[in-house]
Each structure stands twice: as structure tokens, then as C-alpha cells.
């Protein structure tokens, strides 16, 4: 069986950064890019299933919707044990919102025909936590979000999963396959991709597909296919705090003054 693992290249900011001239995103010069932390766990979950099943039973395919810059995280995925890597891109995909990206991934699922799709619970940069679930919606598959435990025999019609709820509760449920799971941090211990294994992964091919090749209608993606659009990115003015100094009695007096001031 096949497990598809959609992964994303996310940005992390320097302490000091500048915004792009159009004010709609951070200037990429001030970002470091890496594989989304949540995707480390979804990828590990897939690779662990593959390793437990023995040679040739499970195939793990990593997929990303990105420009050529996305090759870096695909290599990392290959180094960590993915069997194949697919990158889907052309200019028509620029400015896609999370649902538009989900449409691309859903088409990739139809193209690859996996039995399971493991997404990260959310992305570390934008944090919509929607893409994975939207993929399930588009496919009409069963889905579970924020999965913190997984027990599955490759090929079986049902998987048993745990979900963490509020208040320390754990919900155990069985889910029919094919299914989309979004994986929570802490479900496993993601392995390290050593520099040597990444270099060795450089020798493996990355399959590059255009949206047209997997049957995507340009109207469904990019700016045209997105119902949301980033208008502006900014840092809101911070609330000001004041340290009250002096002896406890003085501090109390000053505090009372402030309370009276605020209350008018």
C-alpha cells in the first residue's frame, strides 16, 4: 500500500526582520526555511509504518506544492525514509490559499491512489490547520484531525487512532480507510536526517508535475481559485507596561492611583 505525505516548506523569522515592499508578507531575506515541524511527525509516522511492515509492503511518497525551493525539504524527506518525492508547481499556483492548495493535493491523491494520507496537524508559519482536512473533504474520505496515536496494519480496512482532547482526555476511535489523518506533535520521535543521508538523497529523482498533468483546472488554484487573500501583514502596536518601583507601600499607592485613573 501507499501512504502519501504532503509536506510544506515553512518560514521562520529572524529576531529582526523587514516586510516585503507590498506589505503582504515578510521579506524572504529575513527568513530561514525548513520542513514544517508537524510534517516531521507525519512523515515519521508513515516511515515507521513502512519499517515495521518489512520490505516492499508500504511505499511512502512525499509531496509538496512549491517552487524549486521546495526540493530541499523533499530531499530531507527522502533522507528520512520516503521512497519517492513529488513536487507540483507552475506559475498558476502562486498565491494559492490553503483550500486551493488542498485542491492540488487532492488531485495528487487521485493521481497516486494512496491508501492513507498523513498531513501535519498544521503548518508552523501560517497555522490554518485546514489543508489536511480540506483534502479529505474534497476527496470525500474519512478523516481525523490532531491524531496523537496510531495503530494500523498496512492494508487493513480500519485504523485505530488516538486523539488528544481538552482536559487531558484521549479519544480512541477507529477509522475506515482510505482516510486522511492530520498528525499532532509528539506522536513519535522524528529521526534526524544526517548530512550524509541528505547528500545520498540528492541522487534520487524528484518527480516534478504541473497542475495540468494531474488534471487541475487553473480556475481552481492560484489567486483565481482562492477565496481568501492576504491584505496586509504587520506588527500591531504593543501594549505598554510599566514597572512600578519603590517600597511596597509606595507601590500600593501608585497602583491605587492607576486603578482610579483607569476607572475614571
Amino acid at each position: 500500500m501507499k501512504i502519501l505525505v504532503p509536506i510544506k516548506r515553512v518560514a521562520s523569522l529572524d529576531d529582526e526582520f523587514e516586510l516585503r515592499d507590498d506589505g503582504r508578507d515578510v521579506d524572504p531575506d529575513f527568513c530561514e526555511y525548513d520542513l514544517n515541524e508537524f510534517d516531521e511527525y507525519s512523515l515519521e509516522a508513515a516511515v515507521e509504518l513502512k519499517e515495521r511492515a518489512g520490505e516492499g509492503v508500504v511505499e511512502v511518497v512525499a509531496v509538496t506544492v512549491d517552487t524549486q525551493d521546495g526540493d530541499e525539504i523533499l530531499r530531507k524527506a527522502l533522507a528520512k525514509g520516503a521512497d519517492r518525492a513529488i513536487r507540483i508547481w507552475d506559475e498558476s499556483l502562486a498565491e494559492s490559499d490553503q483550500i486551493a492548495v488542498a485542491r492540488v493535493i487532492a488531485k495528487a491523491v487521485e493521481h497516486e491512489k494512496p491508501g492513507l494520507v498523513f498531513c501535519g496537524a498544521q503548518s508552523a508559519d501560517h497555522g490554518h490547520a485546514q489543508t489536511g482536512i480540506a483534502v479529505a473533504g474534497l476527496l470525500g474520505w474519512a478523516h481525523a484531525a490532531v491524531v496523537s496515536g496510531l495503530s494500523y496494519e498496512p492494508g487493513a480496512p480500519v485504523a485505530t487512532i488516538d486523539r488528544e482532547l481538552e482536559g487531558g482526555l484521549v479519544q480512541k476511535l477507529s477509522i475506515e480507510t482510505p482516510a486522511v489523518l492530520t498528525i499532532q506533535l509528539g506522536i513519535n520521535k522524528p529521526r534526524y536526517a544526517s548530512l550524509r543521508s541528505i547528500k545520498q538523497a540528492n541522487a534520487k529523482p524528484i518527480e516534478v508535475l504541473s497542475p495540468a498533468e494531474i488534471g487541475l483546472d487553473p480556475a481552481q488554484t492560484g489567486l483565481a481559485g482562492s477565496l481568501s487573500r492576504v491584505r496586509r501583514m504587520y506588527i500591531p502596536e504593543r501594549g505598554r507596561s510599566v514597572m512600578i518601583e519603590g517600597a511596597p507601600a509606595e507601590q500600593a499607592a501608585r497602583l491605587l492611583e492607576i486603578v482610579k485613573e483607569v476607572n475614571g
Binding site: E32, D34, K80, P190, R191, Y192, A193, S194, L195, S197
Partner: peptide
């Protein structure tokens, strides 16, 4: 290290060194 079995804190540091 080649098999990826190391402390998460150490993974973070090595990742940082590789990046920056």
C-alpha cells in the same frame, strides 16, 4: 546519527548549525 537516532535537542542544534 546516520540512522537519525538522537536527542531532539541535539537534532535542533545540528539543524541550526546546518542552516546558519
Amino acid at each position: 546519527v546516520d540512522e537519525g537516532e538522537l536527542d531532539p535537542a541535539l537534532q535542533k542544534t545540528l539543524g541550526a548549525v546546518a542552516k546558519s
